[in-house]
Amino acid sequence: MIESVINPLNTDWTTWVITAFCALVAGMSKSGLKGFAMINIPLLANLYGGMASVGILLPFLIFGDIFALVYYRRSAEWKYIKILFPWALAGVLIATFFGRYINDEQFRISIGIAIIICLALIVYKDIYGGKQVLSDKKWFSSSLGLSGGFATMIGNAAGPIFNLYLMSMRLPKNVFIGTGAIFYLILNLLKFPIQMFYWDSISLKSLQLNFVLLPVLLTGAFIGKRIVKYIPEKAYRYFVIGVISVSAIMLFF
């Protein structure tokens, strides 16, 4: 009886423990350690398959977004969300109808290349300076928004793309986290009914597992929030750039 409650998908316990670890990582990522959750994508896909893994991960991300929003909502900047959201929404709509027919490997590689190129531009500007801000360029915001919306719908893999956009503005740490929290929450809530009723990647049993592991996710969120407090602004920027780089490389594999 207890087993059917805490393990509704009837997986082996190794799979259950790894899923719990992914919940912990999602909480840590959403509370400030940006990019950590990227490791959840290949882990869950290997355990449950591509489509099912997307449905298992999405509620974890929503829980984490809500936690981050509670703590960082006063630091959020809506003007950045307004710039990126229309393009991201377009990407989500495209992925909703055409996502099943696109070669996943080719998509991952193209996104990885795009992230590395944009990241190189940001690092170049950090080193050599310059008054021009990349985020002011329409091609920069539109391309990242569109590809990010597509990536978040296909595989919850938009973290590096949206983090890259916010990072290009050199936002303070708390503004970076708070703005991202609102933006991700809006997109993830829009994705939820699509994945549950159109893609059938979310079931009542998978949702039950999400709620069972909610305490684990909240533990990760508190851990992440504590760690972020002790990371200086400059070091935090380098940390996020490093995680984005690793995440982009992971997309190739």
Rank of each mutant, 00 (worst) to 15 (best):
S31R: 11
T11P: 00
A26W: 07
F21G: 08
I18L: 15
F21P: 00
G27D: 14
K34Y: 14
N7D: 08
G35R: 02
K30A: 11
I18F: 12
N40D: 10
L9G: 03
F21R: 01
I6Q: 05
N46V: 06
L43Y: 03
W13K: 00
L57F: 14
G32T: 11
W13L: 08
D12V: 00
S4I: 05
S4C: 03
T19D: 01
G55W: 12
Y48G: 04
N10I: 00
V25P: 01
G50V: 14
S29D: 12
N40Y: 05
A37W: 05
G35S: 08
I18K: 03
P42S: 11
L44V: 09
A45F: 05
L43G: 03
T15G: 00
L57V: 12
S31W: 13
I56L: 14
V17Y: 09
F36K: 02
A26T: 15
L47V: 05
V25W: 03
A23G: 13
A52V: 13
C22D: 04
A20Y: 09
V5N: 05
V5R: 07
L33Y: 09
V17Q: 06
W13F: 10
A23I: 09
N40T: 07
L9I: 12
P8G: 09
M28L: 15
V54I: 15
I56E: 00
T14D: 01
I41L: 15
M28E: 13
P8M: 10
T19G: 02
N46D: 08
W13D: 00
A26D: 07
P8A: 10
M51Y: 11
S53V: 06
T11F: 00
A52E: 12
V17D: 01
G27A: 14
N7W: 08
M38D: 09
L43N: 03
Y48T: 06
G35W: 03
L47G: 04
P8I: 11
C22L: 09
D12P: 01
L57M: 15
L9Y: 04
M28D: 12
A23Q: 12
L43W: 04
A26I: 11
W16P: 01
G49V: 09
I6T: 05
V54W: 04
I6H: 07
L47I: 13
P8N: 10
A45H: 04
S53P: 01
A37G: 12
T11L: 02
C22P: 03
F21Y: 11
Y48D: 05
C22G: 08
L44F: 10
G27M: 14
I41R: 02
K34M: 15
I56S: 01
L44M: 13
L33R: 04
D12W: 04
T14Y: 05
L33F: 10
I39R: 00
N7A: 08
N10K: 13
G55T: 14
K30C: 10
F36R: 02
N10F: 08
L24T: 10
G49P: 07
V25H: 03
G32F: 13
N46W: 11
S53L: 05
G35E: 04
P8D: 10
P42N: 09
P8T: 09
N40I: 06
K30V: 09
T11E: 01
L9N: 02
L33C: 08
N7C: 07
N10Q: 12
I18M: 11
L57K: 03
I39P: 00
F36A: 14
D12A: 03
F21V: 14
C22T: 12
I41S: 06
G50D: 10
A26R: 03
N46S: 13
L24K: 08
S31V: 12
L33P: 02
I18P: 01
